[in-house]
Amino acid sequence: MHAPAAPEQKRARKRVIDSRPQLLALQAFVLLGFFMLWHVLTATGLLNPFFFATPLGVLERTAKDLATAAFYRHLGITFLETVLAFAIGTVAGIVIGFWFARAPLVSAVFDPYVKAANAVPRVVLAPIFALWLGLGIWSKVALGVSLTFFIVFFNVYQGVKEVSPVILANARMLGMNSRQLLRHVYLPSAMSWVFSSLHTAVGFALVGAVVGEYLGASAGLGYRIAQAEGVFDTVGVFSGMLVLTLFVIVIDSAVSAIESKLLRWRPQTSATVSTH
């Protein structure tokens, strides 16, 4: 009743956590196997190292990059774009999601346009944003916002609409006015939906930033990958992808930590007793 999708996932995750070291070992094994396969295929010449790079080459390049100051400038810019896109998209999604959910006329009028806007492939907007906002960070932020906004918007809208009518009636009987209902009932209910979409939203903010950089920029991880591609430097491309992957893992675990702290009230396992 409380939140979408999450309970089943949580339950599944809970079951495997019991054997955490085993799980980590298996995961490392998959990674190692992948790199081994890659290494063997490129070392034996089955795959051309020029087109597929070599795992050792990629790791070496990544380690070398991590030791330079210039790399952190690029990383910092991508990080800044991601955070800005995420923050602006989320706040706008929450505010407008609330507005639409609480004003049925507005949502009815704008419904087809919201759906149409969401159906536009955002990549085609990237050159437009670059035209409007220049090649600096803001065109990338705009692209990221156009992606994250809709995810948060739809979740907030749903979260506000799906508040239990009994909880609402009870809150009104307890004496809440509409502002207090917003604070004590609608907002917490909507936040549980927002958080369940947070991983996706952060991911899309990053995609917006990197794709924007890839298509036209002077700095950032996406820019580096585009540069490497321009000179057929496959090692550089794969190294850039590896860094992006690590970056996403770090951000995602930060989101998980925040989520588990803020959604402590949500049942982690199946509920205690049925009520009817």
Binding site: H2, S164, V166, I167, A169, N170, A171, M173, L174, G175, M176, N177, Q180, H184, V185, P188, S189, S192, W265, R266, T275, H276
Partner: peptide, 28 residues
């Protein structure tokens, strides 16, 4: 003048028991 105890679950799941009990006084 009425307090209403509902048949189905009406506690706010995002509040602790203490906060659920206190919230009526707080909003007043």
């Amino acid at each position: 003048h009425a307090g209403y105890m509902f048949q189905s679950e009406a506690l706010m799941p995002w509040k602790t028991a203490r906060d659920n009990v206190a919230v009526g006084l707080e909003v007043r």
